[in-house]
Protein backbone atom coordinates (compact mmCIF):
# COMPACT_ATOMS: atom_id res chain seq x y z
CA UNK A 1 0.00 0.00 0.00
CA UNK A 2 1.04 3.58 -0.63
CA UNK A 3 0.95 6.42 1.89
CA UNK A 4 -2.69 7.16 1.17
CA UNK A 5 -6.15 6.13 2.28
CA UNK A 6 -8.67 5.94 -0.52
CA UNK A 7 -12.04 7.63 -0.47
CA UNK A 8 -13.31 10.54 1.58
CA UNK A 9 -13.61 9.91 5.31
CA UNK A 10 -17.05 8.52 6.01
CA UNK A 11 -19.47 9.55 8.75
CA UNK A 12 -18.13 6.72 10.91
CA UNK A 13 -17.25 7.85 14.41
CA UNK A 14 -13.62 6.91 13.86
CA UNK A 15 -13.32 9.99 11.66
CA UNK A 16 -15.17 12.27 14.08
CA UNK A 17 -14.32 11.46 17.64
CA UNK A 18 -12.52 12.46 19.73
CA UNK A 19 -10.76 14.30 16.90
CA UNK A 20 -12.17 15.44 13.63
CA UNK A 21 -10.17 13.99 10.77
CA UNK A 22 -9.84 16.72 8.17
CA UNK A 23 -7.58 15.47 5.40
CA UNK A 24 -6.53 17.24 2.25
CA UNK A 25 -8.18 15.30 -0.54
CA UNK A 26 -6.30 14.57 -3.74
CA UNK A 27 -7.04 12.76 -6.98
CA UNK A 28 -4.67 9.98 -7.95
CA UNK A 29 -4.84 7.84 -11.10
CA UNK A 30 -6.68 4.55 -10.83
CA UNK A 31 -4.09 1.77 -10.97
CA UNK A 32 -4.48 -0.18 -14.22
CA UNK A 33 -3.94 -3.49 -12.44
CA UNK A 34 -7.08 -2.99 -10.38
CA UNK A 35 -9.29 -3.13 -13.46
CA UNK A 36 -8.67 -6.87 -13.78
CA UNK A 37 -10.27 -7.67 -10.44
CA UNK A 38 -13.97 -7.98 -9.64
CA UNK A 39 -15.40 -4.48 -9.45
CA UNK A 40 -12.37 -2.99 -11.17
CA UNK A 41 -13.93 -2.31 -14.54
CA UNK A 42 -16.29 0.29 -13.14
CA UNK A 43 -13.67 2.36 -11.35
CA UNK A 44 -13.34 5.98 -12.47
CA UNK A 45 -10.13 7.23 -14.09
CA UNK A 46 -9.07 8.90 -10.86
CA UNK A 47 -9.57 7.99 -7.24
CA UNK A 48 -10.02 10.31 -4.29
CA UNK A 49 -7.25 9.75 -1.75
CA UNK A 50 -5.71 11.45 1.27
CA UNK A 51 -2.27 11.09 2.73
CA UNK A 52 -2.10 9.34 6.07
CA UNK A 53 1.68 9.42 6.19
CA UNK A 54 4.68 10.69 4.26
CA UNK A 55 7.07 7.76 4.15
CA UNK A 56 8.55 8.80 0.81
CA UNK A 57 7.85 5.28 -0.48
CA UNK A 58 5.00 3.80 -2.47
CA UNK A 59 5.28 0.45 -0.72
CA UNK A 60 5.89 -0.92 2.77
CA UNK A 61 2.39 -0.56 4.18
CA UNK A 62 -0.10 -3.39 4.04
CA UNK A 63 -3.70 -4.02 3.08
CA UNK A 64 -6.13 -6.80 3.88
CA UNK A 65 -8.48 -8.60 1.50
CA UNK A 66 -11.60 -6.53 0.93
CA UNK A 67 -13.81 -9.17 -0.69
CA UNK A 68 -15.95 -10.80 1.96
CA UNK A 69 -14.78 -8.45 4.70
CA UNK A 70 -18.30 -7.35 5.48
CA UNK A 71 -19.88 -10.79 5.56
CA UNK A 72 -19.73 -11.03 9.34
CA UNK A 73 -20.92 -8.42 11.83
CA UNK A 74 -17.68 -8.58 13.82
CA UNK A 75 -15.63 -6.96 11.07
CA UNK A 76 -15.53 -3.62 9.26
CA UNK A 77 -13.30 -1.73 6.88
CA UNK A 78 -12.58 1.72 8.28
CA UNK A 79 -10.76 2.91 5.20
CA UNK A 80 -9.67 1.39 1.94
CA UNK A 81 -5.99 1.82 1.13
CA UNK A 82 -4.60 3.12 -2.16
CA UNK A 83 -2.73 0.00 -3.13
CA UNK A 84 -1.77 -0.48 -6.79
CA UNK A 85 -1.50 -4.17 -7.57
CA UNK A 86 -4.03 -5.17 -4.95
CA UNK A 87 -7.75 -5.65 -5.62
CA UNK A 88 -9.98 -2.59 -5.37
CA UNK A 89 -11.55 -2.19 -1.97
CA UNK A 90 -8.59 -3.66 -0.08
CA UNK A 91 -8.62 -2.59 3.55
CA UNK A 92 -5.98 -0.13 4.73
CA UNK A 93 -7.39 0.18 8.24
CA UNK A 94 -9.91 -2.35 9.45
CA UNK A 95 -11.25 -4.11 12.52
CA UNK A 96 -12.08 -7.69 13.28
CA UNK A 97 -13.42 -8.24 16.77
CA UNK A 98 -11.09 -6.76 19.34
CA UNK A 99 -8.29 -6.30 16.79
CA UNK A 100 -7.84 -3.17 14.72
CA UNK A 101 -5.23 -3.37 11.99
CA UNK A 102 -3.51 -0.09 11.12
CA UNK A 103 -1.97 -0.99 7.78
CA UNK A 104 0.15 2.13 7.46
CA UNK A 105 3.74 1.52 8.44
CA UNK A 106 5.18 4.90 9.34
CA UNK A 107 5.77 6.05 12.91
CA UNK A 108 3.94 9.17 14.16
CA UNK A 109 6.71 11.56 13.09
CA UNK A 110 5.88 10.70 9.48
CA UNK A 111 2.10 10.80 9.85
CA UNK A 112 0.16 13.74 8.48
CA UNK A 113 -2.03 15.75 10.84
CA UNK A 114 -5.08 13.91 9.54
CA UNK A 115 -3.22 10.61 9.89
CA UNK A 116 -2.40 11.35 13.53
CA UNK A 117 -5.99 12.24 14.30
CA UNK A 118 -7.24 9.08 12.60
CA UNK A 119 -4.67 6.91 14.42
CA UNK A 120 -5.63 8.32 17.83
CA UNK A 121 -9.32 7.88 17.05
CA UNK A 122 -8.65 4.25 16.12
CA UNK A 123 -7.06 3.62 19.51
CA UNK A 124 -10.02 5.19 21.28
CA UNK A 125 -12.49 3.33 19.05
CA UNK A 126 -11.10 -0.17 19.53
CA UNK A 127 -11.39 0.25 23.28
CA UNK A 128 -15.14 -0.23 22.82
CA UNK A 129 -14.46 -3.81 21.75
CA UNK A 130 -12.91 -5.04 24.97
CA UNK A 131 -13.93 -8.69 25.29
CA UNK A 132 -15.47 -8.82 21.80
CA UNK A 133 -13.46 -11.62 20.27
CA UNK A 134 -13.97 -12.35 16.56
CA UNK A 135 -17.05 -14.45 15.81
CA UNK A 136 -15.47 -16.19 12.85
CA UNK A 137 -11.98 -16.99 11.64
CA UNK A 138 -10.79 -17.01 8.06
CA UNK A 139 -11.42 -20.40 6.48
CA UNK A 140 -11.84 -19.52 2.83
CA UNK A 141 -12.08 -16.84 0.16
CA UNK A 142 -15.46 -15.33 -0.44
CA UNK A 143 -17.31 -16.46 -3.57
CA UNK A 144 -16.61 -13.32 -5.61
CA UNK A 145 -12.87 -13.74 -5.27
CA UNK A 146 -13.16 -17.51 -5.71
CA UNK A 147 -14.82 -17.06 -9.10
CA UNK A 148 -12.08 -14.59 -10.04
CA UNK A 149 -9.44 -17.17 -9.11
CA UNK A 150 -11.21 -19.85 -11.13
CA UNK A 151 -11.14 -17.53 -14.14
CA UNK A 152 -7.38 -17.15 -13.98
CA UNK A 153 -6.44 -20.66 -12.83
CA UNK A 154 -4.87 -21.37 -16.23
CA UNK A 155 -2.42 -18.50 -15.71
CA UNK A 156 -0.73 -20.06 -12.69
CA UNK A 157 2.50 -21.94 -13.21
CA UNK A 158 1.42 -24.45 -10.61
CA UNK A 159 -0.53 -27.13 -12.53
CA UNK A 160 -2.17 -28.28 -9.30
CA UNK A 161 -3.70 -24.89 -8.55
CA UNK A 162 -6.84 -25.53 -10.58
CA UNK A 163 -7.30 -28.98 -9.08
CA UNK A 164 -7.04 -27.52 -5.59
CA UNK A 165 -9.81 -24.99 -6.11
CA UNK A 166 -12.28 -26.85 -8.37
CA UNK A 167 -11.18 -30.50 -8.24
CA UNK A 168 -9.08 -32.40 -10.74
CA UNK A 169 -11.92 -33.32 -13.13
CA UNK A 170 -13.10 -29.77 -13.73
CA UNK A 171 -9.54 -28.47 -13.75
CA UNK A 172 -8.65 -30.93 -16.52
CA UNK A 173 -11.85 -30.28 -18.46
CA UNK A 174 -11.34 -26.51 -18.40
CA UNK A 175 -7.55 -26.49 -18.49
CA UNK A 176 -7.37 -23.99 -21.35
CA UNK A 177 -10.74 -22.31 -20.93
CA UNK A 178 -10.79 -21.18 -17.34
CA UNK A 179 -12.90 -18.15 -18.17
CA UNK A 180 -15.71 -20.41 -19.40
CA UNK A 181 -15.70 -22.27 -16.11
CA UNK A 182 -15.70 -18.99 -14.19
CA UNK A 183 -18.72 -17.90 -16.23
CA UNK A 184 -20.56 -21.07 -15.20
CA UNK A 185 -19.75 -20.43 -11.55
CA UNK A 186 -20.82 -16.81 -11.90
CA UNK A 187 -24.24 -17.88 -13.21
CA UNK A 188 -24.73 -19.92 -10.06
CA UNK A 189 -22.83 -17.69 -7.66
CA UNK A 190 -25.60 -17.81 -5.04
CA UNK A 191 -25.08 -21.57 -4.77
CA UNK A 192 -21.28 -21.62 -4.54
CA UNK A 193 -19.70 -22.99 -1.41
CA UNK A 194 -16.29 -24.24 -0.32
CA UNK A 195 -15.99 -27.83 0.88
CA UNK A 196 -13.67 -29.08 3.60
CA UNK A 197 -10.84 -29.58 1.10
CA UNK A 198 -10.85 -25.98 -0.10
CA UNK A 199 -12.61 -26.73 -3.39
CA UNK A 200 -15.32 -24.40 -4.62
CA UNK A 201 -18.46 -26.22 -5.60
CA UNK A 202 -21.86 -25.31 -7.04
CA UNK A 203 -24.37 -26.86 -4.69
CA UNK A 204 -26.36 -29.09 -7.03
CA UNK A 205 -28.17 -30.63 -4.07
CA UNK A 206 -29.73 -27.27 -3.22
CA UNK A 207 -30.46 -26.66 -6.87
CA UNK A 208 -32.38 -29.95 -7.02
CA UNK A 209 -34.37 -28.87 -3.98
CA UNK A 210 -35.42 -25.70 -5.79
CA UNK A 211 -33.34 -23.41 -3.60
CA UNK A 212 -31.70 -20.44 -5.34
CA UNK A 213 -29.36 -19.06 -2.67
CA UNK A 214 -27.39 -20.72 0.10
CA UNK A 215 -26.82 -17.54 2.11
CA UNK A 216 -30.34 -16.41 2.86
CA UNK A 217 -32.20 -17.40 6.01
CA UNK A 218 -35.12 -18.35 3.75
CA UNK A 219 -33.02 -21.35 2.70
CA UNK A 220 -33.08 -22.63 6.28
CA UNK A 221 -36.86 -22.23 6.44
CA UNK A 222 -37.29 -24.19 3.26
CA UNK A 223 -34.88 -26.94 4.33
CA UNK A 224 -36.57 -27.34 7.71
CA UNK A 225 -39.89 -27.59 5.90
CA UNK A 226 -38.49 -30.24 3.56
CA UNK A 227 -37.41 -32.37 6.52
CA UNK A 228 -41.06 -33.40 6.80
CA UNK A 229 -41.25 -34.54 3.19
CA UNK A 230 -39.71 -38.01 2.87
CA UNK A 231 -38.38 -37.77 -0.69
CA UNK A 232 -36.35 -34.66 0.26
CA UNK A 233 -35.69 -35.20 3.96
CA UNK A 234 -32.22 -36.73 3.66
CA UNK A 235 -30.95 -34.05 1.29
CA UNK A 236 -32.45 -31.32 3.48
CA UNK A 237 -30.81 -32.76 6.60
CA UNK A 238 -27.42 -32.93 4.86
CA UNK A 239 -27.73 -29.34 3.62
CA UNK A 240 -28.75 -28.08 7.05
CA UNK A 241 -25.72 -29.75 8.59
CA UNK A 242 -23.44 -28.38 5.85
CA UNK A 243 -24.58 -24.80 6.28
CA UNK A 244 -24.83 -24.67 10.07
CA UNK A 245 -22.22 -27.11 11.34
CA UNK A 246 -24.95 -28.57 13.57
CA UNK A 247 -26.36 -32.08 13.56
CA UNK A 248 -29.77 -31.81 15.15
CA UNK A 249 -31.77 -34.95 14.70
CA UNK A 250 -35.43 -34.00 14.42
CA UNK A 251 -37.38 -31.41 12.42
CA UNK A 252 -38.71 -30.04 15.70
CA UNK A 253 -35.22 -29.39 17.05
CA UNK A 254 -34.19 -27.66 13.82
CA UNK A 255 -37.31 -25.51 13.98
CA UNK A 256 -36.66 -24.62 17.62
CA UNK A 257 -33.06 -23.65 16.82
CA UNK A 258 -34.17 -21.55 13.85
CA UNK A 259 -36.92 -19.79 15.78
CA UNK A 260 -34.66 -19.03 18.72
CA UNK A 261 -31.78 -17.68 16.64
CA UNK A 262 -33.40 -16.18 13.55
CA UNK A 263 -32.81 -12.49 14.47
CA UNK A 264 -29.15 -13.15 15.18
CA UNK A 265 -28.19 -15.36 12.23
CA UNK A 266 -25.61 -14.36 9.65
CA UNK A 267 -23.91 -16.22 6.82
CA UNK A 268 -20.19 -15.94 6.17
CA UNK A 269 -18.31 -17.20 3.13
CA UNK A 270 -14.99 -16.28 4.70
CA UNK A 271 -15.90 -18.04 7.92
CA UNK A 272 -16.50 -21.31 6.08
CA UNK A 273 -19.73 -20.91 4.08
CA UNK A 274 -21.91 -21.35 7.13
CA UNK A 275 -24.53 -19.64 9.22
CA UNK A 276 -23.40 -18.35 12.59
CA UNK A 277 -25.30 -16.89 15.52
CA UNK A 278 -24.38 -13.51 16.99
CA UNK A 279 -24.19 -13.96 20.79
CA UNK A 280 -26.64 -11.89 22.84
CA UNK A 281 -25.14 -8.51 23.71
CA UNK A 282 -22.22 -8.86 21.31
CA UNK A 283 -22.88 -5.96 18.99
CA UNK A 284 -21.60 -2.54 20.00
CA UNK A 285 -23.84 0.42 19.25
CA UNK A 286 -22.21 3.09 17.12
CA UNK A 287 -21.59 6.51 18.58
CA UNK A 288 -23.45 9.42 17.04
CA UNK A 289 -21.68 12.11 19.03
Amino acid sequence: MSDAAQGEPSQHEVFRTPFKVQPKLEKWPTPDQQREYPGGKDLPDQLTVWRVQNSGKDYGSVVSMGYGFGDSPDAEILTVGYAPGKPPGSAGVSRHGNFLQWGFSSPPAQMTDAGKAFFLNCIVYVHKFDGKRPLIHVQSSDRTYAVYLIGIMDRFNDPQFGARIVGSDLAKQYADKAKDLAALYLQQIELVYCDGQGQFIIDKQLQDLGITSNRKVEMLDKLVNLLGQPPYADAAQQALQRYTGLSLNTPQRWQQWLTANRPRLFFSDVGGYKFFVIPEGYLVAPSFR
Binding site: G60, S61, V62, G97, N98, F99, L100, Q101, W102, G103, F104, S105, C122, I123, V126, H127, K128, F129, D130, G131, K132, R133
Partner: peptide, 11 residues
Amino acid sequence: SRPTVTIGVVG
Protein backbone atom coordinates in the same frame (compact mmCIF):
# COMPACT_ATOMS: atom_id res chain seq x y z
CA SER B 1 -9.84 -10.44 24.04
CA ARG B 2 -8.11 -7.17 24.89
CA PRO B 3 -8.66 -4.21 22.55
CA THR B 4 -5.59 -4.30 20.33
CA VAL B 5 -4.19 -2.20 17.51
CA THR B 6 -1.88 -4.18 15.24
CA ILE B 7 0.40 -1.97 13.19
CA GLY B 8 1.94 -2.29 9.74
CA VAL B 9 3.56 -5.44 8.38
CA VAL B 10 4.07 -7.20 11.68
CA GLY B 11 0.50 -6.37 12.61
